[in-house]
Structures are given as C-alpha cells and as structure tokens.
C-alpha cells in the first residue's frame, strides 16, 4: 500500500471514527458506572456513593421478577439455537454448492426470513400455535421464531464462505483416495471451522438478545430480554443498570471466548 505522508483526510476521518466509537461505547459505560450507585442514588448522575447494593438487589428473587430463571432459559435457548443454526447452515451451504431444483427459491426464502418484520413472525407463530392447539413455549415456538432470524445469517455466511472455497482441495483429497466422509471431516471441516464458530456466535448472541420474536411466542415463562423490557416500564432504581451491566458483561465474555477459540484454531493450524 501507499507510503506517502498522512493526508488531512486521514486526520479528519480518524477524528470521525473516534467520535463514532465514543458514540457506541459512551452510553454503555454510563450505565456500567451508574450500576455501582450508592443505596440512595437514583437513575442519573451524580453518583451518590459507591456500592454493590444494586447487584445484591438483582439476585434477591423477589426484587425484580425472575432474573435467575429467565437467564437460564435465555442461555439454554441460545445454546439450542446456536447448535441448530450451525448444523443447518452448514448443510444448506453444502447443498447450495450443487445445483438442485428450488435452490433459488430456497435462497430467496432465506433472504425473506431476514427482511420480514420480526413482530409479524411473532404474531404469525403465536396465532398458528393457538389455532393448532399447541401451547407456546420458549423451547418450542420461540425456538422456531429465533431460528427464522439466525438461520438466514448462517446461510448467507456459509454461502459467502463456499463462494471463496476452491474445490481443488477436495479433489486433491479424493485423488489421494479419501472417501467423501474423510474429505469432509479432514479437509473441508478444518478449513471452514473458524467460519462455523462465527456462525455459532451469531446464533447464540442473536437469540440471547432477541426480543420482538419472543414477544408472542415465549408462552408462560419469560426470557431475559422480555424480563428486561418489562422492567423498563416499572423499575425506577439502578437495579435496571445492574442487570444491564451483568448481561453486557456476559455477552462480552461469550464474544471473547469465541474469538479466543478462533485464534487458537488458527495458531494450531499454522503450527501443525
């Protein structure tokens, strides 16, 4: 790339980028700070002392609904969505490498799944379950609703991955006498593993934070975002911020762990 001196454009855009990052993280850091608000503190600055009072408050069951239960449900649901998204997207990605009847229709169905407003899917699944006489539940109807959001992302990512994937690796493996399963497990899978982990991260976080699609489909028990949404209207203490801090921290941990795995896989591949 070019080695000339940095232009004015560079400095202007750098300032713009820094402002953008501040815009992204600024408000988030405000609620992290405010969640350590003293016992008599309110929803805004200044800090009225420092305490862990609101975090303690969060874990008292009666104080703010069912935080533990909704977290557990959201976590399990996220894990289920993640596994199904990875497997189904991988299979669909493999299918799209070949020509098959209805490939274009299926592709555009996946795109449609991305653009159909989530509240419409929520309403549709809710009414559908009601009419068939099935009880909506977070592990049934909400699970399906979340998949309509995570699968298109997974499929599009796999589509992009296989667009750039040269079939010569597999041909070489086949010429060396590998069976199709061996070619898949020892050649293809290790090469696309980082992308699959990325798809898994998307699947988990999109489901873990999904709200609109769960609205009509969760049934009796709330997921975490529904619980938080309920709190925005009736909780007026910094316990709301404490909850925000805890869930955001959890999201950061998930992202960091995923990146760690991807880097580790990359190192292992270059070494071995």
């Amino acid at each position: 790339m070019s080695h000339e001196k940095r232009s004015l454009e560079f400095w202007v855009l750098s300032a713009f980028f820094v402002l953008f990052v501040l815009f992204l993280y600024g408000p988030l850091s405000a609620i992290v700070i405010l969640s350590f608000q003293g016992e008599n503190g309110g929803l805004t600055f200044p800090l009225n002392g420092l305490s862990l009072h609101w975090f303690a408050n969060l874990f008292e069951r009666q104080a703010v609904g069912d935080f533990g239960g909704s977290f557990r449900r959201s976590f399990l649901l996220g894990a289920m969505v993640m596994i199904v998204t990875v497997v189904v997207s991988l299979l669909a990605g493999l299918a799209f490498r070949r020509r098959f009847l209805g490939a274009t229709a299926l592709f555009y169905l996946a795109v449609a799944s991305l653009v159909v407003p989530s509240i419409i899917i929520s309403l549709g699944i809710g009414v559908l379950f009601q009419q068939i006489g099935l009880r909506p539940s977070w592990y049934g109807s909400a699970f399906g609703a979340h998949l309509t959001w995570t699968l298109p992302f997974g499929v599009l990512i796999m589509f992009a991955v296989f667009n750039r994937f040269s079939p010569s690796y597999e041909e070489a493996a086949r010429d060396l006498g590998a069976s199709s399963w061996q070619t898949f497990a020892h050649v293809l899978l290790p090469m696309i593993a980082p992308s699959l982990i990325g798809v898994g991260l998307f699947g988990f976080t999109l489901s873990y934070d999904e709200f609109a699609r769960t609205l009509m489909t969760a049934g009796t028990f709330n997921t975490l975002p529904l619980e938080i949404y309920g709190m925005t209207t009736n909780v007026t203490t910094p316990v709301l911020y404490a909850l925000g801090t805890v869930t955001t921290l959890f999201s950061f941990l998930v992202i960091a762990a995923t990146l760690g795995i991807i880097v580790w896989l990359g190192r292992r591949r270059t070494r071995g």
Binding site: V87, A92, A95, A110, I120, L123, G124, V127, G144, L147
Partner: peptide
C-alpha cells in the same frame, strides 16, 4: 444428497416462516 442437505432449512423456514405468514 443436495436435497437432503437443503431439507432441514426448507422445513424450518416452511414451518416457522411460510406457514405463519399464510396464517396471518
């Protein structure tokens, strides 16, 4: 095998996207 590989996606989107929209 392409059909088998595409089937899970088609079934999930059929049940949780197409059917609900038809229902609406």
């Amino acid at each position: 095998s392409a059909y088998l590989q595409a089937a899970p996606l088609a079934i999930i989107l059929g049940c949780f996207l197409l059917l609900p929209i038809v229902m609406i």
